[in-house]
Amino acid sequence: MEYIYAALLLHNAEKDITEEAVTAVLTAAGVDVNEARAKALVAALEDVDIADAMATAAVAAPAAAAAPA
């Protein structure tokens, strides 16, 4: 989840969530950043309203149901 927290942190600080910014935050935390994961995160966030997602998804969390193995 550290990538997600990095995104939330940047969002809260009203910074753009770019690969560089995510990498910088994670590096500061001593995390060995995986470039591909940072890229995937930024791509996934592209069309998402973060404030919205934080507020609404808590109410309607999708696909839970512990599926039997």
Binding site: M1, Y3, I4, Y5, A7, L8, A40, L41, A43, A44, L45, E46, D47, V48, I50, A53, M54, T56, A57, A58, A61, P62, A63
Partner: peptide
């Protein structure tokens, strides 16, 4: 935590 457009909202909400 493999973010995609489908699950990113859940990940954000979880965090």
């Amino acid at each position: 935590v493999y973010p995609t457009s489908e699950n990113i909202s859940t990940l954000l909400a979880k965090a």
